[in-house]
């Protein structure tokens, strides 16, 4: 530090109460005051110190960003709706298709069936019961609401009865869909047990006919029985599902 500068500083530092010095002091005080106030207000308020044009620019930026984000949010909501809607729709369709498959499988005999029903046993020691009697019995059971039927020889082969089932007289028994069954014939029928039993027991009905032929029919109502015999699903060679009408 130069001696000259030191001397000048020392001279200036000596208090002299001239009017000019006092005015300078007042101005310096004003500067300090303004400095402190400005710094403080800058720290406190963020937006209130900005000029009008700055505020307009900021507002513009914010509103633009808002619009952009809103558009983005709309897009995302659309996507979400599409995704969830598609998922639940396909799930519902899948469920319905499964339910329909089960129902059709029971009707077509391609899946096992279980439920309440009756066991119906025909014992025919004189071999007088012919296919028409069994067919009558089957029709009677169908009228009474039989949903799944199986015919078997007791301890022998089992045949799931479906729409296309045919019965033919044969030597020593009856052929059901090409399978030879012989007495005693054993029916497993799923449906309302009381209705089925009553249908067989009506006057002049199946049981009466069997009695006239010298055979006996035994009906046992069951809370639960299971039909396990299946038949392969036929694959249509010519027929194809027609498109739904109106499309």
């Amino acid at each position: 530090m130069s001696r000259l500068a030191l001397g000048r500083l020392a001279a200036a530092a000596r208090p002299r109460a001239t009017r000019g010095q006092l005015v300078a002091a007042v101005l310096c005080a004003a500067l300090g005051f303004g400095l402190a106030v400005q710094v403080r207000s800058n720290q406190v308020a963020g937006l209130s110190t900005l000029s009008q044009s700055d505020l307009v620019r900021i507002l513009d930026d914010v509103s633009q960003r808002t619009a952009r984000l809103q558009a983005e949010a709309r897009d995302l909501e659309d996507t979400r709706a599409a995704v969830t809607g598609g998922a639940s729709g396909s799930r519902a369709a899948l469920q319905e298709a499964r339910a329909r498959t089960r129902t059709l499988g029971i009707l077509a005999g391609t899946v096992p069936a279980t439920g309440p029903g009756i066991e119906f046993t025909i014992t025919d020691p004189k071999n007088h019961v012919h296919a028409d009697v069994l067919l009558d019995a089957l029709e009677e059971l169908r009228d009474a609401g039989a949903e799944a039927v199986e015919i078997s020889s007791v301890g022998g082969e089992q045949v799931r009865v479906v729409v296309s089932t045919h019965l033919v007289d044969a030597a020593g028994g009856i052929q059901v869909d090409g399978t030879l069954l012989h007495s005693p014939y054993h029916f497993l029928v799923i449906g309302d047990p009381r209705t089925l039993a009553a249908a067989l027991d009506i006057p002049g009905g199946v049981l009466d006919v069997l009695h006239q032929e010298g055979a006996t029919g035994m009906v046992a109502q069951q809370d639960s029985l299971t039909i396990t015999s299946l038949r392969p699903a036929p694959r249509p060679q010519y027929a194809r599902p027609a498109p739904a009408s109106g499309r």
Binding site: A12, A13, R14, P15, R16, A17, Q21, L22, A24, A25, V26, L27, C28, A29, A30, L31, G32, F33, G34, L35, A36, V37, R40
Partner: peptide
């Protein structure tokens, strides 16, 4: 000197 004192006084007043 008086000016420096004035500056400090002004800052203090503004802060207070």
């Amino acid at each position: 000197m008086i000016a420096a004192v004035g500056l400090v006084l002004g800052i203090v007043a503004g802060l207070i």
